[in-house]
Design a protein around this nucleic acid. Structure first.
Lengths: 210, 210
DNA sequence: ATGTCGTGTTCACAATAGGAAACCAGGTTT
DNA sequence: AAACCTGGTTTCCTATTGTGAACACGACAT
């Protein structure tokens, strides 16, 4: 973790959170694709409608293309985003990473209804997202709409007692030690029903990036 | 002249089924995500480092964000491209399964060193495997060899105190409330060091089907 | 009322991306 | 040699993005 430029560091501080800005060699990748297909800049220009010069600058990381430009690229070259962005298939498993979080030392992230504490957030590129939550909500009405996010979620009540509302089921009462696993794209919402605000531990699957 | 047009048409058909650039309501989608998480423009600004005004204009499709801007978005909000771009991703899975396990009602699975209790084991085809463990081992020597399994593991100490031995690190002392995330193909082993046997909650990723 | 937060939008300007043309190789042809 | 191509880079200049400040609107106080 010593490869941070000042700008990246500043960004981290400014954003207050992780901001794991991956290198994302988009230009490099584009060039790869172009050469792999033996296309010339002019060819690509024809296909995409972008100027030769623009393409050159993108490949050399001299400019950051506009999103419309990216669309023209993926449209014109008939590729898709993942293909453009996932050249670094490095992923090299088995590197033995680890990231420990002491009690209460996670990154706190308050909302009106929940108070989240993200755990192990030093580690990017992980397949699960663990976090502890203090359930501040007391009534279902406090939620403007269902909470939902792609993937699956596992949840265990650590303290207190909650009511789990979900889109397709009756509300479920859970006390400390109880746990539940569910598809998190089904709307859901938690409220505390114990005297003190309940706390739960959740683990979500991260969305697969193809 | 006509030939030129034909050529272009042929090119389109050959190279791009999606010759026309789809609308791609990126702004709309961003707003969805923002509201779904009950974030304000200012919040998102903090998280991403982009100006409030910029975000507003992006949401209202008044500008096409630069790719660096998009990166800041996905980085700051901890989402990924597909999530940002695929609003119609709904109704794919959304089957809303769930599986609840009351405290102590999981499937017990004892070993000499650990006493596992599998949670939510009614549900097949899930991406995570949650289980609670009573750590009976008291000395590292009780393990004949490293525990290791493909994927990643998240672990939180529920009661007591443990020592986490791992292949590439010094032993780590964890007490109730502490948590850790690690690549589980790295050898690991737990021993209780508190008076009573410690209990931990673990969640493992299931082996990928690739 | 008036004030003052907090949220989202709209200025006006600075920063930067996109495009046309000029430029610079290195090959061919003459 | 010089006169071409051809593919890639660089130089302008314009169009657009990105930003801070000002603005408008409500909510909620005083």
């Amino acid at each position: 973790m010593a490869q941070h430029t000042d700008q990246e560091a500043a960004l981290k501080i400014a954003s207050g959170r992780k901001a794991f800005v991956e290198p994302l060699r988009l230009g490099e990748r584009l060039k790869e694709i172009r050469l792999a297909n033996q296309w010339t800049l002019e060819d690509v220009s024809q296909k995409t409608g972008l100027a030769r010069s623009t393409l050159s600058k993108i490949e050399n990381d001299q400019i950051s293309p506009t999103f419309t430009a990216v669309q023209k690229l993926i449209g014109g070259l008939d590729i898709d985003l993942p293909q453009l962005l996932s050249p670094p298939r490095q992923q090299t498993r088995t590197m033995g990473r680890r990231d420990m979080t002491r009690r209460g030392e996670g990154q706190r992230h308050p909302t009106p209804t929940y108070e989240h504490e993200l755990l192990s957030c030093e580690l990017a590129q992980k397949r699960m997202i663990p976090f502890k939550t203090i359930v501040r909500a007391r009534h279902f009405e406090e939620f403007s709409e269902w909470v939902r996010h792609d993937g699956e979620e596992f949840l265990m009540v650590l303290d207190g007692e909650i009511l789990l509302y979900s889109e397709f089921y009756e509300p479920l009462r859970l006390i400390a030690g109880d746990s539940i696993y569910f598809d998190s794209d089904m709307g859901h919402a938690l409220v505390s029903v114990s005297e003190e605000d309940a706390t739960v531990l959740s683990v979500c699957t991260r969305r697969e990036n193809t």
